[in-house]
């Protein structure tokens, strides 16, 4: 009887596993295998070369620039969009009747627009002469910035756009978390004389830990997967200053048609991401308090 029960469970996950296998697991192992081959325009047939692709990756100065760009993106977008999301979630969680749904809708709508469409939109917003971004900055006395054209600002422009695009989703998760915190905690705290910051520090923040961990992990993954906005807005330029990991992989695999190199980069990318997430769970996961 127990055995049958087990079999049934496997039966249920089988269809999912089947498609995951075809579209995720097999490709992952295939690219790990192919990363040991030279396979490009010069070698139309795969040619086994051990780890020479990996050596080549680490020796390319461009790879380090790309990694640097991506890390800058990660370490700026995550803290800013997460704290913005938390702040706005707390504001929106106040009781203010019907107006709340309007605010919520306004804040959430960037998340609902497809990334490519949003990126096209921001190309115009950032246009140095005609765009509204410079127009409004002009009122603040900021001199004209050539956002996407300028090496110094192009990555910042992408970061601004991505924060605008992503914080709404995080905000919604925080909001759901906030609404799950029972009110009597706050009542008890109020009786004891804890207000404002103390309530946040000792009730809200710990109770939100599971939501925060989830948002953090999702944010890390999406910050390394950044691609669409770069593809549409800058194509990695000017001078590779907005070239990020997935775009770099795309360039090698589909533009240079260097499948060996593309596989090598993909394998490095996946392993790096797995290690990062494992670290997050190890360091933060055990500090999270789950209310049962």
């Amino acid at each position: 009887m127990k055995r049958l029960e087990h079999l049934k469970c496997y039966g249920y996950i089988l269809p999912g596993l089947f498609f995951m296998g075809i579209f995720t697991f097999i490709p992952v192992f295939m690219s790990a295998y192919l990363s040991l081959f030279k396979w490009n325009v010069n070698y139309p047939e795969p040619h086994f070369t051990w780890f020479s692709n990996y050596v080549e990756v680490f020796k390319a100065p461009l790879f380090w620039l790309v990694l640097r760009n991506n890390l800058i993106y990660t370490f700026t977008t995550i803290p800013i969009s997460m704290s913005l999301a938390l702040f706005l979630a707390i504001l929106i969680n106040q009781k203010m009747g019907w107006i709340r749904s309007i605010y919520r809708g306004c804040l959430f709508y960037p998340t609902m627009i497809p990334m490519v469409a949003a990126a096209m939109l921001w190309v115009w917003i950032f246009n140095p002469g005609l765009g509204i971004f410079n127009y409004y900055l002009g009122f603040l006395g900021v001199p004209k910035i050539e956002w996407l054209y300028d090496m110094r600002y192009a990555l910042i422009a992408i970061i601004i756009m991505s924060i605008w695009k992503n914080f709404g989703y995080y905000m919604l998760i925080f909001l759901a978390g906030l609404q799950g915190i029972p009110n009597h905690y706050y009542e008890a705290a109020a009786i004891e004389g804890a207000t404002g910051w103390k309530q946040f520090r000792y009730i809200t923040f710990p109770m939100l830990a599971p939501a925060t961990l989830f948002v953090f992990v999702v944010a890390i993954i999406s910050s390394f997967q950044v691609f669409d906005q770069v593809f549409v807005m800058t194509q990695g330029g000017p001078g590779d200053r907005t070239n990020v990991l997935v775009f770099y992989i795309y360039q090698h695999a589909f533009r240079f048609w260097d499948l060996g190199m593309g596989s090598t980069l993909t394998t490095l990318f996946i392993s790096g991401l797995l290690v990062a997430i494992w670290l997050v769970f190890r360091v933060l996961g055990r500090r999270v308090y789950y209310e049962v």
Partner: peptide
């Protein structure tokens, strides 16, 4: 002249008097 630009954005720049 702008140090960098994109292929698609410069024709509108010309039309817009930039």
């Amino acid at each position: 002249g702008p140090p960098h630009s994109t292929w698609g954005s410069t024709p509108p720049d010309f039309v817009g008097g930039r």
